[in-house]
Design a binder for these strands. Structure first.
Lengths: 252, 252
DNA sequence: GCTTGCGCTTGACGCGGCGTCAACCTGTAG
DNA sequence: CTACAGGTTGACGCCGCGTCAAGCGCAAGC
């Protein structure tokens, strides 16, 4: 039985959204029903459903409804809007990551016996400064139990180690943004630093070419590891892998 | 010049928040000023500042203000509330990750020439089903350029590969939740599957003990890679590393 | 004494995407 | 005729403030 018109409930059930949502979309002009019959009852036809489907596709990305309207009505460039939204999502991701780090640090402190309580009375009294301080004192990272190498580094050393990682990530982001070739000098320079960092992290163990290739492959395969490098572009992880592959072939 | 009372502006500047925020906290009862002088002007003393500091510490984790109030007034267990909040954050993180994947897939589709447009007219017409379908067709992942191995897998193979990774992650989560020892049989079984997966991903390359140890160390060192395993507990990455170390010593 | 200006005060609306009443209409089955 | 199912149009609520608007007390300069 194929209709050409559907009631609000039929549409709602089929798409898995609520009828309230459809009414809301009507009110805001995002999706108007094809026409209204009887006592003001909304009906939707195929064209409306198609638009709805596109709306939901974009909504799944977390894009704002007004932005979606702009995109679908053609008043904004699609790809442009999506890329802008993408950077927004990346920001949100780092925010959540930071909050997770903060919450872990706080839990750790509480379990150490302290209540939630700053170590010192307000001194210099600058919140942001205080915050960084606390996070440094508490580590801001998971426990490192059986890890003598790590603890041997000392607080300063650990701090350095993390700073290097951050710098590395920033440099990858930079070359990815520039759009150069993975085999270019710029990229290979970063690859070299990356390998240097890995070697340090591995306590000087010999890094062989195959090994490096295998690991860099994981940068692409493992979704969450890929998150490390897809900040500026979804091509990021593949770029890093390619650059490291080239480096391995040439230098190891 | 050390005061014992501060005006709202002094507090605001010192902590970096706005005076509006302080008034809001007063209204909701989260932080009441020590007393009010003159024409109703709020003043804060040391005790109030201490409470404020704790508020901001928790607020930095993204915890809701009412929950913060409960914690500080002692009507909830601190650690309990934090852990609950933690799982909330983890959920949020996967949500953002999913949205990023969706946005990347959409961008890719657009650049392939299509406008934002479902491949088929509404057929079975179930939104969620449609969604999964689209994501599968478009890959839902970054481009894999020079990667013959990956493309040789075919769509089905790639799907399998990802499913295995997901299962692996779920199993790690499970054993971490259970709180067993990294050297226990349960954990070692997962470690074995993990190594199997890695070997597959590395195209059958021989995996040596040192290599495995080095990589698992990275699970802890690299913050974002650690994100893979800290979903159920901040101790997660260290647990995985320990389990893999044990496995390497025993079996390789 | 009057004005100006600063710093504070108390409301109140706005945001985003709906969920969730409430009060009402309308067509159909019993 | 009644009950019920399924629709309708408001309107408030959520959360953490930003952002006006209108007003008050106090000090300095005229």
């Amino acid at each position: 039985m194929t209709h050409t018109q559907w009631t609000i409930q039929e549409v709602a059930q089929a798409t898995g959204i609520s009828s309230r949502t459809l009414r809301h979309y009507d009110q805001t002009g995002l999706l108007e029903p094809t026409d209204t019959i009887a006592g003001g009852m909304r009906t939707y036809d195929q064209r409306a459903l198609l638009r709805l489907q596109r709306i939901l596709l974009l909504r799944d990305t977390g894009m704002r409804l007004t932005t979606i309207a702009d995109v679908l009505d053609g008043s904004t460039d699609d790809a442009e809007a999506l890329r802008e939204h993408r950077t927004h999502l990346v920001r949100e991701r780092t925010r959540v990551d930071d909050q997770l780090a903060a919450v872990d640090a706080t839990i750790k402190a509480i379990e150490k016996g302290d209540t939630i309580m700053p170590n010192q009375m307000f001194d210099g009294f600058d919140h942001t400064k205080y915050d960084a301080e606390v996070r440094e004192r508490w580590g801001g990272e998971a426990a490192d139990r059986s890890d003598s190498w790590w603890s041997d580094l000392g607080t300063d050393g650990q701090h350095d180690f993390r700073k290097q990682l951050d710098e590395l990530n920033a440099q990858w982001d930079a070359v990815i943004t520039e759009g150069v070739d993975p085999a270019s000098d710029r990229a290979q320079e970063v690859a070299k630093r990356h390998v240097g960092w890995m070697t340090a992290s591995w306590q000087g163990q010999q890094l062989e070419a195959d090994m490096l290739k295998g690991i860099s492959q994981m940068y692409v395969d493992d979704e969450r590891f890929a998150a490390n490098y897809n900040r500026v572009s979804p091509e990021g992880p593949a770029f890093v892998r390619d650059a490291l592959h080239v480096y391995a072939d040439r230098n190891i």
